[in-house]
Design a protein around this nucleic acid. Structure first.
Length: 274
DNA sequence: CTTTTTCCCTGGACGC
DNA sequence: TGCGTCCAGGGAAAAA
């Protein structure tokens, strides 16, 4: 499940094979991948475009073309890229699209569960698109005071609020659990119940786990892998995610599994009191 | 407005 | 071996 650190890792690895290069031809194998749901139209629109930048906003990859169109890619659960010299990639029944680049590379997109999306927008529409969906970038302009203001008016479970991309962009199930453990906060607590010290710890924890994730090139589990086929190593640093029933690294108590906001959640009942 | 629920989608794990 | 069932979960959309 690519979250901010995984998407940032993908962005960094796609950058050299895309920026400054042109798409010779685009093949869209799955009509559901694109918005609009018209593979012929989108493939035609992408063909001939020259990539200006490959950015990231929250969990979105933002491919800006010189021609002023923007391709927003969201990997959702199982989306991934592979880059290789033309024709070198093995056949893949889950390949949903390929960009055949003029520089000799194939940029193939794979998505087993087909939740991922490729959305082609006019450059002018991008700001409004993100403004409607995403809160601040947690590693850029994002203060503890800002987080406090966003949490205090939400009575829902803290973890559910952290997963709301309008509160802060880029957290998913893994890094939310990791940040809550690090901050010593129970995932089920009401977001509005945090005091200033709680929020400060949470703010630091969120930024810390995301930075660590990027430094470790993301986590590799199940369906995620990076464009060069290499694997991130953040999963080796998980304190709670996937560790229900095992011992807390801080206090040694058994970690418990809950369901919060409809998501599997692991927390320490001692270190994260309700 | 906020919150909750349903849906999308597939493969792997599990019980019988 | 082969079923049926459950689970993983981000985000859109509908319902409450």
């Amino acid at each position: 499940m690519p979250e901010l650190p995984e998407v940032e890792t993908v962005r960094r690895q796609l950058e050299p094979s895309l920026v400054g290069s042109s798409i010779g031809r685009a093949e869209i194998a799955d009509p559901r991948l694109t918005r609009p749901h018209d593979p012929v139209l989108v493939a035609a629109a992408l063909s001939g475009r020259t990539v200006e930048t490959v950015g990231r906003r929250g969990k979105y990859l933002v491919v800006r073309f010189v021609e002023r169109d923007v391709l927003l890619v969201h990997l959702r659960m199982t989306g991934s890229f592979r880059v290789a010299p033309r024709g070198a990639l093995p056949a893949d029944p889950h390949r949903r699209a390929v960009l055949i680049m003029d520089n000799g590379s194939d940029v193939a997109y794979r998505d087993v569960r087909r939740f991922g999306t490729w959305e082609l927008l006019d450059a002018d529409a991008v700001d409004a698109y993100f403004a409607a969906r995403l809160g601040p970038e947690p590693l850029e302009v994002f203060s503890a005071r800002d987080l406090a203001a966003r949490l205090e008016r939400r009575r829902a479970a803290l973890k559910a609020v952290l997963l709301d991309q309008r509160v802060v962009a880029g957290l998913g199930n893994i890094y939310a659990d990791e940040a809550l453990w690090r901050a010593g906060l129970h995932p089920g607590r009401s977001a509005s119940s945090l005091d200033d010290a709680d929020v400060r710890r949470l703010h630091r924890a969120v930024r810390h786990v995301l930075r660590r994730g990027i430094a470790r090139q993301g986590a590799t589990l199940r369906d995620y892998s990076s464009p060069d086929g290499a694997t991130g190593e953040m999963q080796e640093e998980f304190e709670v995610y996937g560790r229900a029933g095992q011992r807390c690294f801080r206090c040694g108590h058994e970690l418990e599994r809950h369901v919060v906001g409809g998501r599997g959640t692991t927390a320490c009942p001692i270190c994260q009191p309700f």
